[in-house]
Design a protein around this nucleic acid. Structure first.
Lengths: 178, 178
DNA sequence: CACCGATGTATCGCAGCGATATAATCACCT
DNA sequence: AGGTGATTATATCGCTGCGATACATCGGTG
């Protein structure tokens, strides 16, 4: 997942770790924070898998004095891998953790896959909503006040998210027709 | 965190793994799902730490024919540990992952700690909200449509959560004064 | 000059997840 | 009586990601 995000980011330009992290943080803002504890290991994983490579040590002319940094760039296999991940978009693509990340890379995502992800996400949130509705109805008044409050808030926010997704989907469709 | 949840649940009654999982799922509903992959290891961890013990094999009379199950109950140390976790409630208590869990155990939480957690959570969400506002303002129109949409939605939902927390806090205060 | 905050790379141990294996029991249909 | 699938139940494996921490350099500000 982090793998997906890093590959996506490196499509913009070659970057070093710190930069990737900042860029990602900027992109996802509230949605999800990635720590260096995942960043560097993932980077090495991608490198071992041949999906990224360290850019040669040239271009030192301009920016010397700068601290040692490793700039990574995508290999053709890396680009392919990113495309594959999108092509095989499935349930884990639209769970709470990844949906935001994928949305952030939508401009680099084919229209049909965009639609599949949006609809998958909608179904996922709708299911949660139904679960909450049922739970709230089932447990009449006898349940703990705070838990009830938690579920009420959860229900409301899933309802909002479904509405939001509907708008996104509608917009997507209108663009497709034009 | 899972540790906190299990200790909290076992205050209700002695339970076996499967039951704990179901109860937790019911309690948290949409909020968070726990897999058996964390459940059983955590249970063993708690047992090793002496916070829970397997209940003796008695009372077999009533329920035989049932599949082997291990019923755990709290030790005094376990109860103490739960109280300690509440007493030392800090930042990790009110992050996205744990806040819901803690709220679900509020009826077992002292009023002053409840207030500390609610206010901590509010500050945390407010900070996120400010971050999003700033980011939305800073990046005028030039940013990717989808990312922008993500941030807009994020901002709206954090705003709603702050309002919700305000209500909870107000209610808490009104109860304190009465 | 001394300190601080940002830049930068890196590792360690732990928490939690998803997938999977295994097995007994129950409710139901035929 | 037999079969089938859902539910109850425990457990492990490898992996992802996190928080804490360490370390080093740089550009300012007091």
């Amino acid at each position: 997942m982090f793998e997906f995000a890093l590959l996506g980011l490196l499509h913009e330009a070659p970057m070093h770790g710190y930069e990737l992290r900042k860029r990602l943080h900027d992109l996802l803002g509230a949605f999800r924070a990635f720590s260096y504890g995942s960043l560097y290991p993932t980077l090495r994983r991608l490198q071992r898998a041949g999906l990224i490579v360290e850019e040669g040590p040239e271009e030192s002319a301009l920016s010397w004095g700068r601290r040692a940094r490793k700039v990574y760039k995508l290999t053709p296999e890396g680009k392919e891998r990113f495309a594959d991940l999108l092509a095989n978009a499935g349930p884990q693509t639209w769970d709470d953790d990844s949906f935001g990340v994928h949305l952030a890379f939508f401009s680099r995502t084919p229209a049909d896959v965009r639609m599949r992800i949006l609809e998958g996400r909608r179904r996922c949130v709708e299911e949660r909503r139904e679960g909450l509705r049922e739970r709230l109805a089932r447990t009449g008044e006898q349940i703990d006040r705070y838990t009830r409050e938690l579920h009420r808030q959860g229900l409301e926010s899933t309802e909002r998210e479904v509405r939001w997704l509907n708008e996104l989907i509608a917009h997507e469709r209108s663009e497709q027709d034009e």
